[in-house]
């Protein structure tokens, strides 16, 4: 039965290089189609290149294909260095890794997995260091701001605090009006606090993110606790999804998880793919699930 299913499926779940390559190409495609900030030349060239790869599947295995995508995005990032989102930098790095991987004569998959292990260590490690070094983050400042303006967990808070939405909507308006007036430079504004234990909630959320990210970096560097670390990464991606609309970045993190996941763990691999499909489809369809502002 299993072998029959495998024969009829669109891809082999154990073919990491093939699946991850198609996912990354899809991420590029969505970005080029959606992101109007990228120049029309780069967008059209990128879309054409990716379309060619979907029709001529050998292109996915060509280093030149990956280096072309990497170069196109690198041009955009270089031209908009201080305005580009971090996930565009990540796309440059990831596609260059695929280019180098396909340039190898042997052990391509090992090259890919080791490169992604170090990339995960770099970007997740730096994210953890930045947060760990920020007093504002430890004090829960970011979560504080989000909750005061009704940006996150509003469905949870609304269940316990009936006038939560009114308070946060009024806070948002007050803040917008405050920012729109240059006479307010140097002045302060105090918003209405919808929750009594906001400080504690903010600090707890901030602390737990730093701890989970730190643990993930440590676990990814070891060969042990395979199930635990991938379960933790899945939980991390899903919970982050409820806090920030960063679906492209989260799909890249999930793709990294898929690449680093052992082949025998088919359920975990499927979970990553379902998650990536959901994240990419919400991004492609401009769907905002409503958890945010």
């Amino acid at each position: 039965m299993n072998s029959e299913v495998r024969q009829h499926s669109l891809f082999d779940l154990k073919d990491t290089l093939d699946i991850a390559g198609k996912i990354l190409s899809m991420v590029f495609m969505i970005t080029f189609v959606k992101y109007e900030g990228i120049s029309p030349f780069i967008r059209s060239t990128g879309v054409l290149t990716i379309l060619c790869a979907y029709f001529m599947k050998d292109l996915f295995k060509q280093p030149l294909y990956w280096f072309s995508l990497s170069a196109l995005m690198a041009i955009h990032v270089a031209q908009n260095y201080f305005a580009s989102a971090n996930h565009l930098f990540v796309m440059v790095y990831f596609s260059a890794i695929f280019g180098l991987t396909h340039y190898q004569l042997e052990n391509k998959e090992k090259f890919l997995i080791t490169s992604f292990k170090w990339m995960f260590t770099v970007f997740m490690g730096l994210a953890t260091l930045h947060k760990g070094a920020s007093l504002f983050y430890w004090q829960g400042g970011l979560f504080h701001d989000y909750i005061l303006r009704g940006g996150i967990l509003k469905f949870v808070f609304k269940a316990f605090i009936p006038n939560f939405s009114e308070i946060t909507a009024s806070n948002s308006q007050l803040l917008n009006d405050f920012l729109a007036n240059a006479e307010n430079f140097g002045k302060t504004l105090k918003l209405n606090n919808p929750i009594s234990s906001l400080g504690l909630i903010g600090s707890l959320l901030a602390g737990s993110v730093v701890i989970v990210e730190g643990i993930l970096v440590g676990l990814m560097l070891t060969k042990k606790f395979e199930k635990t670390k991938h379960a933790l990464l899945l939980v991390f991606v899903i919970s982050t999804f409820f806090f920030r609309l960063e679906n492209i970045f989260l799909s890249l993190v999930s793709m990294t998880g898929f690449i680093l996941c052992p082949k025998e763990q088919l359920t975990v691999r499927r979970s990553y793919l379902v998650l990536i499909a959901y994240l990419l489809s919400t991004s492609a369809l401009h769907m905002r699930p409503g958890f945010y502002y």
Binding site: V77, Y81, F82, A83, S84, A85, N86, F89, F123, L126, A127, H130, K131, A133, S134, F136, Y137, G141, L142, D145
Partner: peptide
């Protein structure tokens, strides 16, 4: 938040 340094979320 910008410049490829992964310091997102540490400021507004």
């Amino acid at each position: 938040w910008k410049g490829g340094g992964f310091g997102m979320y540490t400021t507004l």
